[in-house]
Design a protein around this nucleic acid. Structure first.
Lengths: 169, 169
DNA sequence: CGGTTTATGTCAGCCTTGTTGACTTTCCAA
DNA sequence: TTGGAAAGTCAACAAGGCTGACATAAACCG
């Protein structure tokens, strides 16, 4: 094992690209994603909501006034699927749906105070885990983490992520 | 807010722990996981299998001869849920279930040649994406990636991951 | 030996969250 | 004025989670 960055030829070792290393990354993604969703899931169970509601709430919070179509393209589900979730959130008074000013066909989605409160509770929990992981790994690791994740996305999703990433920072 | 580890005197900045940075990491996980599962999902659609079958096949390949109970604890689902998946895999001749030698209550699971072929197809696709991401990000980033993911896991899952990580390397 | 526990499998029923297909209403824009 | 876009809805279905109840075989223990 081992072999440094500067083997006989001067280039970087490609050992990090072995099937073995890749497999570890794949399994790490699997187990880490479980942790990633665990805290919000715990909060939501018991309420009538699930992970799908969490995702909707997250992105509405993230882009207040976003349209249904916009949300659809971010979440990557069908409108029937999203509508089922949105309907309950609107009925329960967590989300408000406002008719568009310029284009009255559009609905602009915003969190109510009640919705914002749940969003805060969920994202506090998720951020707490993330913060602990970031702190344990350190800033250099975090940078690498984000680089690899970004490279792993489908190009279309990467564009959406980058658009999102820039707004609000 | 802000303020480095050592003030002006040379510690690391804690800017990477801002809510903004954490939110980017959260969204990166969300979008990256979609990419992570996209290729195997594409292969499996049309066959009668889904992501649950993929996971079972992956870990049986990973630990040939593993028992049902062992697989249950790795996958974190109920035995009824796993059994539905295993039954079809066994019926279709992708997985073989062998009565234990010492403990005849146990069933040891192994992939048949047919099962191994599907495993190869799935993991080739998943590794190809991972390899491209690793290559694009570079070895230092990969190390950071794995560090953060590991820190994000629940302690119990982290132990399972680490056990798995060591075997077979 | 007999009782208890463990490992596995199975039936039935439920929930969430995804899908497709068909159809409506409203409204913008050419 | 007409075609198409945005949104919403109904119905039906599938995957993959879950619980609860129960059955069998084997191991283990007193």
């Amino acid at each position: 094992m081992a072999e440094g960055t500067g083997g006989p030829g001067g280039g970087e070792s490609l050992l990090f690209l072995t099937d073995e290393q890749l497999r570890k990354g794949i399994e790490a993604m699997f187990f880490a994603y479980r942790g990633f969703t665990a805290d919000p899931d715990r909060i939501l169970e018991g309420m009538d909501y699930g992970r799908a509601h969490h995702r909707a709430i997250h992105f509405i919070h993230r882009s207040p006034g976003t349209t249904v179509n916009n949300l659809l393209s971010i979440l990557g589900v069908t409108k029937q699927s999203l509508n089922r979730v949105l309907r309950t959130l609107i009925e329960d008074g967590l989300v408000e749906s406002r008719v568009g000013r310029q284009d009255k066909r559009e609905r602009h989605l915003v969190l109510t105070e009640k919705g914002a409160a749940l969003e805060r509770e969920l994202s506090d929990a998720q951020r707490a885990r993330m913060r602990a992981a970031y702190r344990a790994a350190g800033p250099a690791a975090v940078q690498g983490f984000r680089q690899v994740l970004e490279a792993m996305m489908d190009p279309q999703l990467r564009r959406q992520y980058q658009t999102l990433k820039e707004t609000g920072s």
